[in-house]
Nucleic acid binder design. Structure first.
Length: 745
DNA sequence: CATACTAGG
């Protein structure tokens, strides 16, 4: 403990932060404060646990460069930081910043964003432990569905990038924050990309705000250049702590990567030292298939010569697996069969979930065929689809790195070195270039960005993608013809939903079915609820048939949720009906969150009396049309072919569709491109509803010529003959709720 | 006839 030598006032030794000048601290000051017997932020004595963790923290590479960090941080407003795996950047840098900003003395916060919820939660927990604090007090996290912060107390907050973007919508200057750290910026999620654009312009308005962009090596220069004020942003670099990984390539390109992958895994099992294997494949079916084949072949090897190879455990890994089965990747490899026998080996076969989201220790061998499923967006036909595509060099490096986490490893790339050098892109295209931007554009407009084309993107999306988004928002009446946000659009932007769904939810009280639309929207927002195990497909399909409403899949989803509720949200009931209890529970959670937002805006929660089910269902189907009138298909001929309205894509009803007939007109939730173009989650609608509830989109004077237009003209003629003088408009439900003062189309 | 990479609000 320090002695009072007369130069410092009495009692200063009891104040760990004595002499700290905000934004101008030195590493030795901070180190002393960290070792002080009192916690600088709570003034309580440090625990023994704290000192133990501190000793481990001091061994992190980033700790050795604390002085350099403070030199750069004090001098610059924006920093790009590169810290490889194992450098300790995610846990330590935000703490370093807290010692410099002293946010707790000024009512401010330090924020650190993460692309994933689990990361935000687990890092916050770790840092709370390191700082000797209770999680949710001074250190907290904020993710959708869970705000673990205490206003006025929390000064260090981990959060998802999407949450910070939401906050920016209501406080564009992000006044609460003294420093904002964007972690894992190299992943280039949509939210991180938009945040980088916002922060770059915010830096000019708020010279007191500091910004740190944390990224992997390859992208650093790009971010430095992007954040050029007069000179490029300075780089602060910290080495990682990983083991070397030896890379092997094939001599010739492999014609069948799945077959080659299986062969390689078995080769490793036969010939290489003990150590677990990680194989990357592209999807559920491929993974389950490879699992079976590897097991069979390994059994063969063992039968031929029991002493030649050890036992194996083949473990599939993809996101739709229940968490309990995902946990199996952390099981130990199986033991050898006899005391002297060859040791067992764990083989994990995974989608790219194991590339960033899940880390498996003990992997020594990585097999990388060089492919993954990636989202691609075609703005011309407004369709997002998944395609098996070659990965980028950055991805390949990330995959290889997974072999060197605990000891030196090997990575087998099932492509040639020449292809790696010449054919692979440097980086995976950022999400903003591969997505439908309807949602993002609405967020940007709400943020006050008027000229979307000239917004300072790190990578600008295709103008056509932006035009398509603006067009959709205009048809939904979220934007007026000048591109200004309407009151309806402003309300839509507050819902964590795609604009179509937000729109139909907001107008649903006019159709006396907001309870039902709320349920449908929640069910559409969660992963597929239908389970279909390979060996019980018939049983699963039969169970689904019992819950199916023949008028439309949207109504079936409503029915499933209601039955789940009638059965007291029972997981076993769900299981017995081949439904995912996890997805249903999630839907219930989403439903509550959306309900709270509806209450905030005084949107009535109503349901019509159940006397006339047809009428009840018709109202729901009409409300669906108000959101999804741009996703309509019209039957052509008798072969079950449909043409999407206006862009004339030939599509078929997805095999999972529960309609008992093939109606002339349907709305669909999703277009998917697998073995052929399908529309999925489909409901039967009446053409007069399209004309009635979406008159601008279905304005026949400007409608493209074709069979669809002629069918709509016939509908119009019939309606006019029938009602003679009673206009279609008059049959609309009476407007009542506050929301109905908004334009509706 | 024949069915799903990952993450986020």
């Amino acid at each position: 403990m320090s002695k009072n030598n007369g130069k410092t006032p009495a009692g200063a030794e009891k104040e760990p932060l004595f002499g700290f000048m905000p934004r101008n601290v030195k590493a030795d000051q901070v180190q002393k404060a960290m070792e002080h017997e009192l916690n600088p932020f709570t003034k309580k004595p440090h625990s023994a646990q704290y000192m133990k963790i501190l000793a481990a923290r001091k061994k992190l590479p980033v700790f050795a460069q604390m002085e350099e960090f403070y030199n750069v941080f004090t001098k610059h407003q924006i920093i790009v930081m590169v810290g490889e795996t194992g450098s300790g950047k995610t846990t330590q840098i935000p703490q370093f910043v807290a010692y410099s900003d002293l946010p707790h003395t000024r009512g401010k916060l330090v924020a650190c964003t993460q692309p994933r919820r689990v990361a935000a939660m687990s890092v916050a927990k770790r840092v709370a432990d390191e700082m000797d604090m209770q999680l949710g007090k001074q250190v907290g996290y904020s993710i959708r569905f869970e705000d673990m912060t205490e206003p006025g107390t929390t000064f260090l907050k981990y959060m998802t990038d999407g949450m910070l973007l939401r906050e920016a919508m209501n406080d564009p200057d992000l006044q609460r924050y003294s420093t904002i750290i964007l972690d894992e910026a190299h992943e280039r999620t949509l939210a991180t990309d938009i945040l980088m654009g916002l922060l770059k312009s915010l830096a000019k308005r708020r010279p007191d705000l500091k910004i740190i962009i944390m990224s992997a090596t390859l992208d650093a220069l790009k971010f430095q250049r992007y954040f050029t004020i007069d000179t490029p942003a300075p780089l602060f670099k910290v080495p990682g702590r990983t083991h070397p990984v030896e890379i092997f390539y094939t001599q010739e390109p492999e014609p069948d990567y799945v077959e080659a992958a299986i062969r390689t895994v078995l080769m490793i099992h036969r010939a290489e030292e003990p150590g677990d294997i990680l194989l990357f494949l592209t999807g559920e079916e491929e993974i389950e298939d490879a699992c079976r084949k590897i097991k069979l072949e390994a059994d063969d090897l063992q039968n031929q010569d029991p002493e030649s190879v050890g036992p194996i455990a083949c473990i599939p890994l993809y996101s739709s697996l229940p968490p309990q089965q995902q946990q199996r990747i952390f099981d130990a490899a199986p033991p050898s069969r006899s005391p002297d026998g060859p040791p067992g080996r764990k083989i994990v076969i995974s989608t790219n979930i194991a590339e960033t989201s899940l880390t498996i220790d003990g992997i020594v061998y990585v097999v990388d065929p060089g492919f993954s499923k990636q989202k691609v967006y075609n703005p011309r036909i407004r369709v997002e689809s998944l395609l098996v595509s070659p990965i980028s060099k950055a991805s390949a490096q990330q995959r290889a790195g997974r072999a060197g986490r605990t000891r030196p490893g090997k990575c087998f790339r099932l492509y040639t070195e020449k292809d790696f050098m010449k054919e692979l892109e440097e980086q995976t295209h950022p999400e903003i270039l591969r997505s439908n931007l309807a949602n993002t554009v609405l967020e940007l407009v709400k943020l006050g960005i008027k000229d979307l084309v000239r917004f300072d993107y790190v990578d600008a999306p295709a103008p056509e993608t932006l035009m398509r988004a603006l067009e959709l928002l205009n048809y939904l009446a979220a934007l007026d013809d000048e591109g200004n946000l309407t009151p309806l659009g402003s309300m839509m932007s507050e819902f964590p939903l795609d604009p179509q769904m937000a729109k139909m939810l907001i107008v649903s009280p006019e159709f006396k079915c907001s309870q039902e639309i709320l349920t449908i929207v929640a069910m559409l927002s969660v992963p597929n609820v239908w389970l279909r195990p390979n060996n019980q497909r018939k049983e699963a399909d039969a169970a689904k048939q019992l819950l199916t409403v023949p008028d439309g899949d949207h109504l079936t989803l409503l029915n499933v949720y209601n039955e789940y509720k009638n059965n007291e949200y029972d997981k076993n009931w769900a299981w017995n009906h081949y439904l995912s209890g996890r997805s249903l529970a999630q839907a219930d959670n989403v439903r509550s969150q959306l309900q709270r937002i509806m209450e905030r805006f005084d949107i009535d929660l109503v349901s019509m009396e159940y006397k006339d089910q047809t009428k009840h269902y018709n109202n729901i189907r009409q409300a669906l049309v108000c959101g999804f009138f741009m996703q309509v298909a019209h039957k052509e001929g008798e072969k079950g072919n449909y043409l999407t309205v206006k862009d004339n894509q030939v599509v078929a009803l997805h095999p999972s569709c529960g309609l008992d007939t093939q109606p002339d007109w349907v709305i669909f939730n999703e277009f998917v491109l697998t073995t052929r173009p399908y529309i999925r989650t489909v409901t039967d609608v009446k053409p007069q509803w399209l004309l009635e509830f979406a008159p601008t989109y279905f304005d026949l004077s400007s409608f493209p010529d074709g069979e669809t237009k002629r069918a709509l003209q016939r509908t119009l003629q019939k309606a006019n003959q029938k009602s003679r003088g009673t206009s279609v408009e008059d049959k609309r439900p009476k407007k009542k709720s506050k929301t109905s003062s908004e334009p509706r189309r």
